[in-house]
């Protein structure tokens, strides 16, 4: 089963959507990494005249916001923040979700029932409202946003992992391993999880996309970190001048869409490549 990995990248590149997603993502990553070298400076510095339109002044190619901060510097710095928020919160969600799903699926019975009730609880509570509660209540910062998003995003992963574990549990090679007397935890760790992982990777890509959107939405409500320039922060700050200078909200929004699109496409591609039997659908 692990033999599928060498060919994954090639298969992904053959997949139209997956390849596009991968390319977009690489471009965004490059921009986030190289941006500070190409457009150095503090994104908070109020250096330009306020509310310059994009193209109005070559010194600020994408214009400036209401406080005279360069939009391009802000967008590039925001890319790093948004990607970081997406990745870390997804990591939290994936670990939590895998843990809950694997334990529930593997042990079954009461543990499973309890864990599934917990999952159900988190799926009945409006997740965004819960995230807002968490962030509002514990002072808005990047850390609280990451934690809050992670905490509300795990149920989908948990259900997926549980379903995978359940289906693997009855397979011959697991039964055989069990018969050899391999400990349950080791069995879970060495045999079941690696085989359950591919769809988790695919769904993680979608979770990242959603996490990035959620961070922006939190910042839009004024619950962003006031010391960190994220795309959401720029949108939230530009809201007051929406009509006169819509590009302040518009540009980071477009950056956000491209990024989310890249992750969605990639997730899609991964899904198709990692689950070939679903491919025909």
């Amino acid at each position: 089963m692990s033999a599928r990995h060498p060919g994954l990248l090639r298969r992904l590149l053959m997949h139209r959507q997956g390849a596009l997603g991968l390319l977009l993502l690489i471009a965004i990553l490059l921009l986030a990494a190289a941006g500070p070298l190409l457009w150095p400076g503090d994104p908070w510095e109020m250096a330009a005249p306020p509310m310059l339109w994009p193209g109005e002044d070559p010194a600020n190619p994408l214009g400036s916001d209401v406080m005279g901060r360069d939009m391009l510097t802000g967008l590039v710095s925001g890319a790093r923040v948004s990607l970081m928020v997406g990745l870390v919160s997804t990591l939290i969600a994936t670990v939590l979700g895998t843990l809950v799903g694997a334990l529930g699926g593997f042990y079954g019975g009461r543990i499973d029932a309890a864990l599934m009730r917990l999952t159900e609880l988190f799926q009945t509570v409006p997740t965004f409202v819960l995230a807002v509660v968490l962030v509002a209540v514990f002072r808005p910062s990047v850390a609280t946003a990451v934690l809050a998003i992670g905490i509300v995003s795990w149920p989908a992963t948990a259900r997926l992992v549980r379903a995978q574990v359940l289906s693997l549990r009855g397979r011959d090679f697991i039964l055989a391993a069990e018969a050899y007397g391999i400990g349950t935890l080791r069995l879970l760790w060495t045999q079941i999880l690696p085989n359950a992982l591919p769809p988790v990777i695919a769904i993680s890509s979608l979770t990242i996309a959603h996490a990035i959107q959620t961070e922006a939405a939190l910042a839009f409500l004024g619950l962003g970190d006031p010391n960190v320039m994220s795309w959401g922060t720029i949108i939230g700050g530009g809201r007051e001048q929406l009509i006169e200078a819509w590009y302040v909200c518009g540009l980071p929004g477009i950056a956000l869409i491209v990024t989310v699109l890249a992750f969605n496409l990639l997730g899609e591609g991964l899904n198709d490549c990692l689950n070939p039997h679903l491919r025909s659908r």
Binding site: P50, V66, E240, Q241, L242, I243, E244
Partner: peptide, 28 residues
Amino acid sequence: KDAAIRAAALQSGQAEIALNIAPHELRP
């Protein structure tokens, strides 16, 4: 809630008075 939307409504004549528009929108 949005100051910018209060300003827009005022401009289009949907309202006569709007409270607290962001300072930078006042000039236009």
